[in-house]
Design a binder for these strands. Structure first.
Lengths: 155, 155
DNA sequence: CGATTGAGGACCATTTTAGTCCTGTATAAA
DNA sequence: TTTATACAGGACTAAAATGGTCCTCAATCG
């Protein structure tokens, strides 16, 4: 299903919440209340986001979490990678692909191309986009539909 | 990681194998040999692909599996859906989203838009593309990068 | 100093996934 | 008509990933 893990979902919601009020730190407990999720889970998510350098934390009273950089400089890929590791569709999508099916696979290169396209797309979607509270309903067909694979264009 | 399940990977490899020799039925055992995977697993995968109407099967001696329609009419989405259910990034991406975080979520609409864009892209990638044996190396940046979200375009 | 708040990691329960196997049924060829 | 071939369907198990909770330690502010 290409599904994101639940924690990634939480991360997006939490990041968006912070992005909408970027001027002061947000404590984990406060965020948990705002997004209506259990505190320990929110806390765990926040820690992962800090480790990925998407948030910075401030300890002590009045402490909390802040965006590490502007929302427009944080991409969907960043958030997904922070929670699930690199965005890749197949096991052999990463550079040092040591898949023992290489010889008989025959689709590896093409999947990687598809994977790359999606990654590039997600790089272009920023937290600023995600955090917008007045979403415009999309038409069913996006301009993306007109994109062609290099392989296709060359036929 | 937006990762496909391993069975989906297998499905793609198997489908591509059949697509390259579309004129006669391929037995599960033959395919298992060709792609170097255990027979039971290949068999299971093939059954799922039949149930999803991407393959048709022929029983009995000289039987096997054939594409249900031309490779150019089978999309990556079709294959992924067959193995993992509908392509959707979030739990609330499907129509009757009864996510109890609706009120506090704030990113649902935007994720759905992203999800839709990826789905549309995958609809456009066909088995014929995937099965090509002489892949053209993509430049790092695909045309897809120029695509804008409706939300972004409207700012 | 003491209250607050994050850091880090251990831990367990649950779900999902992968993989195997068994029994039944359709079909083709001898 | 018989027999071998090959798929259909589903039960079952083992392993792995995921989600979620909790505990102890460290930093910071007032």
């Amino acid at each position: 299903m290409l599904k994101l893990s639940r924690l990634t979902d939480y991360a997006a919601v939490i990041m968006a919440q912070i992005a909408r009020h970027p001027d002061h730190p947000h404590a984990a407990a406060e965020l948990a209340g705002a997004v209506n999720l259990p505190y320990p889970t929110v806390s765990k998510t926040l820690k992962m986001l800090v480790k990925a350098d998407l948030l910075v934390s401030q300890r002590g009273a009045q402490g909390g979490y802040l965006l590490a950089r502007p929302a427009s400089a944080i991409s969907a890929s960043d958030i997904i990678s922070a929670m699930e590791g690199p965005v890749a569709m197949t096991e052999c999508s990463h550079a040092d692909g040591d898949c023992d099916l290489m010889a008989t696979c025959g689709v590896a290169d093409n999947w990687q191309r598809v994977s790359q396209a999606i990654r590039t797309f997600l790089d272009g979607v920023t937290l600023a986009h995600l955090a917008q509270t007045t979403p415009i309903k999309l038409p069913v067909h996006l301009p993306i539909q007109t994109v062609t694979l290099a392989a296709e264009a060359s036929r």
